[in-house]
């Protein structure tokens, strides 16, 4: 037994990588899916969006890039499906330059599926640097930050933007967060202007955002791939997040097994040394 544990303790880390890879690939190849019971916080976010009257203006902030795409892109697409199916109007902007094309790609794809018209049903404003300054000034007047959209079209020539002067005209901000921009949205957007916020975050950032939910500073938090899968479930969509639930559960079990074996091995070998 001790010999086996010794061997396991000295195992090449590449075997562990291979095991994790197989635990990911095999469930995907089986094409099996796993039913998830939506978390209360995701249900709360869903119900808030459901309660918005038709034609309400909602904003999405793309604060992530390709490295967080697997978790946040399904969330964005689910939100866009939800918004357009309810005839909500969407304004998109962002604070991460490398992520904005991902946002624009999803916006155009989903808007096309619902025959939505640019400028009337949705607008892509683009990027301005300065996070906090941008958020504060949008609360005063959108025109101080964005006089034109991403294609230099004056925003007053867009029917949707003629109805929007500041956050008073916005019913919801969905912040898709891979870093600390979510804090800025809460600390400036909510604290100064009472902007209703839902934060969709990567799993890494989620624990940092839960305190805002507990303090009622945000409506809710949708966390990680699991949060995205919950949202897809509530919408009745089987997207990439839902497909990822089975492999994620299998890998978690594999990792837990590694942690248990590793700890048992460590304790037994330490005792044997003594």
């Amino acid at each position: 037994m001790i010999e086996l544990l010794k061997k396991l303790a000295g195992i090449d880390r590449r075997f562990i990588y291979a095991a994790v890879f197989l635990a990911t690939a095999i469930p995907i190849l089986t094409k099996a899916t796993m039913k998830v019971e939506p978390l209360p916080e995701v249900r709360k976010a869903y119900e808030y969006i459901e309660s918005l009257p038709e034609s309400s203006v909602v904003m999405v902030s793309i604060d992530y890039d390709a490295a967080s795409m697997p978790e946040l892109q399904p969330m964005l697409e689910a939100f866009l499906h939800h918004s357009f199916s309810k005839n909500l109007r969407v304004i998109m902007l962002g604070h991460w330059p490398l992520g904005l094309p991902l946002g624009q790609q999803a916006l155009e794809k989903v808007a096309g599926q619902y025959n939505k018209e640019y400028g009337v049903d949705y607008v892509f404003l683009g990027y301005r640097p300065g996070v906090a300054a941008v958020i504060i000034n949008l609360g005063k007047d959108f025109r101080t930050v964005f006089s034109s959209d991403y294609a230099y079209t004056p925003i007053d020539s867009l029917p949707l933007m003629r109805e929007v002067s500041n956050y008073k005209n916005v019913k919801l901000l969905l912040g898709l967060e891979a870093g600390a921009v979510g804090d800025a949205w809460v600390q400036y957007g909510y604290a100064r202007y009472n902007l209703p916020i839902i934060l969709g975050s990567t799993a890494v950032s989620t624990p940092d955002y839960y305190p805002y939910m507990q303090a009622n500073q945000v409506i809710s938090v949708i966390g990680g791939l699991r949060g995205a899968a919950d949202y897809e479930t509530l919408l009745g969509i089987t997207g990439e997040a839902s497909i990822g639930m089975l492999p994620q559960s299998v890998i978690h079990l594999v990792i837990i097994a590694f942690i248990i074996i590793g700890n048992i091995g460590f304790l037994v070998l330490r005792r044997a040394k003594k």
């Binding site: 990567t202 791939l225 978690h252």
Partner: peptide, 15 residues
Amino acid sequence: YTIMARISLLIQRVY
């Protein structure tokens, strides 16, 4: 949560 996030990235790439 961090493990969950990193695994999500792997799942998407393998997919």
